[in-house]
Design a binder for these strands. Structure first.
Lengths: 243, 243
DNA sequence: TAATAATTCTCATTATCTGAGAAATTATAG
DNA sequence: CTATAATTTCTCAGATAATGAGAATTATTA
């Protein structure tokens, strides 16, 4: 094991099921001797990437708050979410959650979010949350934003892992391009539906989407067309803001 | 240079004035050869701690969003901010910002915040923001929460760097303990005032404070006593929630 | 106070990192 | 489209740092 990987392996553990780890448990999970682990953990604690919590175990440290804040205040794409999402959700006729998501490597991540007061959802999409790459309006709108070659590569890789209906997916992407938005129902969470539009910023290599998530039971035909309108106009606003 | 420090030195640069760095600029700032830097940056990019941005420069990466989200959802102290701060600010008679801050090493950091719709402030305290250690109600309430030995050590260290009125500070801390809260005006931002109460959770080694920040011009005597009441009751609620 | 667990330390061995420059790749301009 | 410059990766021997087993130390608990 070498370089940054040494530290990243440790940190990754804290993203899994457990948010607190004892050195003993980490030693088993990573198959490393305690002396080595103590040394690495001490370094991470010194730099605040981990923090010691009383009962001889450790958790993620405040450095992440500091770096995340810096990212939030300096990344123009995340900023555009802070600017445009709150007014957007206020214009919705029904309770919704708005999420701005982008491709990172081969995954889709939410980088900004906002919700109306009334919206309650356990799966409410939050900044920092990773999305499934092939399900839901969010991810499909990101796929639609990609150059063909890259899109096909991602679909092929994903198809190798799970069985997907490539024909149907391709049809959806074509429809998305044609009408400017896409609605999916119950693909990610059975009770929710998503309405998404693509956002491409080729200059920055950003492939993204804007999604409005609502409870399926709230979506009347009138609300649906209003949300479609909102998602398209705001995707357009963000596109312009970024260029 | 060794271990995690190697990577941390690079990452720290992105917290300073510039949020984007070219390899050339980093090489000068850190006095390192390009080949070494490229190697380290590549590792950080692979693990998403940095990300490449078109014009041959780099910025902080999405890993921080992911880790920060995990921290936010798993740290009970940060959670208590999410639970108690929104209802708190809704009860305020004037526009305010509420900040939950704690000691990290020898610094004070805001770990959760909320504000009323009407509150506008360039210095609005946000999660992840570091506070000055000796100025303002926030930091003083943290100092008051500390064991005497540790408090005196921090004050002595800070006094060595800047000239401070230790007698006055001590008097303020005594008053804070006596009446349960402390008001300071214009110490951090000339137009703002802070009302803070201490929060100690010795079991977790957490020394913290809850602060309400308002524009000095909004603070009537009636508002002041109401805010003092709010800050004390909610500090108490958080204390109970955490034990 | 004794006993146990957690953490740091020591040191010889092993593996990794380093830096200079060459080589390859990518962007820019003519 | 080609030449030129800038960016990024690669190579390799020497320098440096990481490793792990166990001893030593320091909390914690009974």
């Amino acid at each position: 094991m070498s370089g940054f990987e040494r530290y990243h392996r440790i940190l990754r553990c804290f993203l899994q099921s457990e948010s607190q780890w004892s050195v003993k448990a980490l030693a088993e999970a990573l198959d490393l001797p305690a002396s080595t682990l103590y040394r690495r953990i001490r370094e991470l604690v010194q730099h605040r990437f981990l923090e010691s919590v009383g009962d001889s175990s450790y958790r993620l440290g405040p450095a992440f708050l500091e770096f995340e804040r810096r990212l939030r205040e300096s990344d123009p794409f995340i900023q555009s979410g802070g600017i445009f999402l709150p007014p957007l959700v206020r214009q919705s006729p029904i309770p919704i959650c708005a999420a701005l998501c982008r491709l990172q490597g081969n995954e889709v991540m939410c980088v900004a979010d906002a919700r109306t007061q009334g919206f309650e959802g356990s799966t409410a999409y939050e900044r920092g949350k990773l999305m499934p790459i092939l399900y839901g309006a969010t991810s499909k709108a990101v796929l639609a934003a990609l150059p063909l070659r890259r899109r096909d590569k991602i679909i092929a890789e994903a198809a190798a892992r799970t069985t997907i209906d490539v024909v149907h997916l391709t049809a959806q992407l074509r429809q998305l391009k044609k009408q400017g938005f896409l609605i999916t129902r119950g693909e990610v969470d059975a009770r929710l539906a998503g309405i998404a539009a693509s956002i491409t910023l080729p200059g920055d290599g950003i492939y993204a989407s804007l999604t409005l998530i609502a409870h399926q039971s709230d979506i009347t035909p009138a609300a649906e067309s209003r949300l479609a309108e909102l998602v398209m106009t705001h995707a357009s606003l963000i596109r312009q803001f970024m260029t």
